[in-house]
Amino acid sequence: MSISTTLPASQYSNYQNKVARSRATSEPVWARWTLIAIVLLFLTLFLIVPLAAVFTEALRKGFDTYITALTDPDALSSIKLTLIAAAIAVPLNLVFGVAAAWAIAKFEFRGKSILITLIDLPFAVSPVIAGLIYVLIFGLQGWFGSTLLDHDIKVVFAIPGIVLATIFVTFPFVARELIPLMQAQGKEEEEAGLVLGASGWQILWRITLPNVKWGLLYGVILTNARAMGEFGAVSVVSGHIRGLTNTLPLHVEILYNEYNYAAAFAVASLLAILALVTLLLKSFVEWKVARDAQIDEKS
């Protein structure tokens, strides 16, 4: 399920191939505008109106209520927990992504396509099941349940469980982003570094990573967005303890179920802003990549 994350291949190549279309291969003006209108209507109904609703509902009871909802101690502690989970999950999956991409893109070995499919697995698993499997292992009746209890370590219904679930659902993003990119770049530059006397780590730091920096950033942005926004998986392992094991999305749910709509949407608006910033950064990275590709092609 790679499509969700990878930069469209066209961003890297063929960027200038968009030939100005001639008369013979374009539609009549009325058809063109009808199609545009249908698409805009569809996207308005499904994207723009819901997005606008988040902010409208958040501010319905005035700005003061909005601020109060965000500065509530429970809200603040959920923000903190969300940041902690992302701060652990993102670096770990980043390191994994780089290692996996290095092995897969730069070497040939048997079972490579199976490995790539396995890395994709978390995308195919329902978030609810992602939470469930950690409950099965670390929960009270789970594999390690009694051992953990003996040592007074809580995983499920505590922060470690939330972190694990977050790592699981964001597992493939960086790897999926880097693998095609590093495959496309080949091995010549790394070999050149080797001939010039660089060590493996020097090659990684000075040649490979700078070459994929935008793809890397893109993967990190997506990982972060998903890590901060994950709901289903975290919901299963969190136990919903207010002020302790609630992440931002879970806090939204609690407020909503208490019919405290204004506060729910106020907190939700924070996450919506995060989503918009993510989209902005994503567009910026795509623009950067396209520009670099153009410079490459010009010469």
Binding site: S4, L51, F231, P249, V252, A268, A272, A275
Partner: peptide, 9 residues
């Protein structure tokens, strides 16, 4: 947006 917006929101 649906990729970036948390599902609960």
């Amino acid at each position: 947006l649906p990729f970036a917006l948390p599902t609960a929101v």
